[in-house]
């Protein structure tokens, strides 16, 4: 990176460190922090959508739909998520390929499971065998997002389901009295009003989601944990210009600080959002705000 980095052995400590921390591998490490933030940014809305539809189907008056929604919530929450993560990614991948195989290669006669191999026709491969590495990485990332969203969607569904029931009945009855159809009541009254009840649960969920991101490591994504382990390990002089001992403790300390900062920061932001949403609501928080303003 810097011009003086050509001979690291001859440098004093500070300069050595500045060179060491700017090697190509370290940029991959820094990039992995962005990956974590990226997966959070993508997963949160997708999980919220899953949660919303999960809650809607759990509320449905059609029995099978309601069972489906409730079953989804119950099963995902009863099992350690790490088991889901290890299981879902392979299952999803093979599931998608199987579907595409059925659609794209109807004439294929070979069995899909040949011994240990899972073989679909080349056109059905995801991503296509011809795709560049970037596409493969994006696909792996996408699978991780869907897996995360499925798991967290179940928790979000539970929160939203509870929040929808917490909206005061009188508000819905008033809407009916004004002649709104059930659909209008749902979209114009229930949905806007439920957020204030859902937010405490959802913000808790967001904190948990942040803390779940190190598990990306188990999904084969080269995330912060992967690089901390790789970079922190002892390095001998034969294979690197920057040999060092076992530094894994310090790398993981950096990760701890990163996560503490993330959770601390989002707590601040979420509590502001809560104050905003509480405005004018028929809750103790809203009442306190009203009194505060009056006084």
């Amino acid at each position: 990176m810097f011009s003086y980095c050509t001979d690291p052995d001859a440098l004093d400590r500070l300069r050595w460190l500045s060179c060491y921390l700017t090697t190509g591998v370290h940029f991959s490490f820094y990039l992995s922090f962005l990956k974590v933030i990226g997966i959070l940014a993508v997963t949160a809305p997708v999980a919220l959508a899953f949660g919303f539809f999960g809650a809607m189907s759990a509320r449905s008056s059609i029995a099978p739909v309601s069972w489906l929604g409730k079953g989804y919530i119950a099963v995902v929450r009863g099992v350690p998520d790490i088991a889901f993560f290890l299981f879902f990614v392979i299952a999803l991948d093979q599931g998608f390929e199987w579907l595409r195989h059925q659609a794209l290669c109807p004439d294929w006669t070979d069995p899909i499971r040949q011994g240990n191999d899972f073989l679909v026709c080349p056109q059905a491969k995801l991503p296509l065998g011809t795709a560049p590495q970037a596409v493969h990485q994006t696909y792996a990332f996408g699978l991780a997002v869907v897996t995360f969203a499925l798991v967290f969607g179940a928790f979000a569904a539970n929160v939203i389901f509870g929040a929808m029931r917490a909206v005061p009945k009188a508000q819905l009855e008033t809407a009916e009295a004004y002649g709104m159809s059930p659909r209008q009541t749902f979209w114009r009254i229930l949905v806007p009003q439920m957020w204030v009840y859902a937010l405490p649960g959802l913000s808790n969920l967001w904190q948990v989601l942040i803390k779940a991101t190190p598990l990306l490591f188990l999904l084969g994504i080269e995330d912060v944990v992967y690089w901390a382990r790789e970079l922190g390990g002892t390095k001998t002089a034969r294979f690197t210009a920057y040999p060092h001992g076992d530094w894994r403790m310090w790398y993981f300390l950096a990760l701890l600080v990163f996560y503490l900062f993330m959770t601390w920061g989002s707590e601040k932001i979420l509590s502001r959002l809560m104050t905003r949403l509480t405005r004018g609501q028929a809750t103790t928080g809203g009442e306190a705000q009203r009194r505060g303003a009056a006084a």
């Binding site: 803390k211 779940a212 190190p214 598990l215 894994r248 990760l255 701890l256 503490l260 601390w264």
Partner: peptide
């Protein structure tokens, strides 16, 4: 409480092992 609730258990395991 902040330290242990604010960071992932997974990382706490790793870090504690190295400590």
């Amino acid at each position: 409480v902040f330290l242990f609730r604010g960071s992932p258990l997974f990382i706490q395991f790793f870090f504690a092992y190295f400590v």
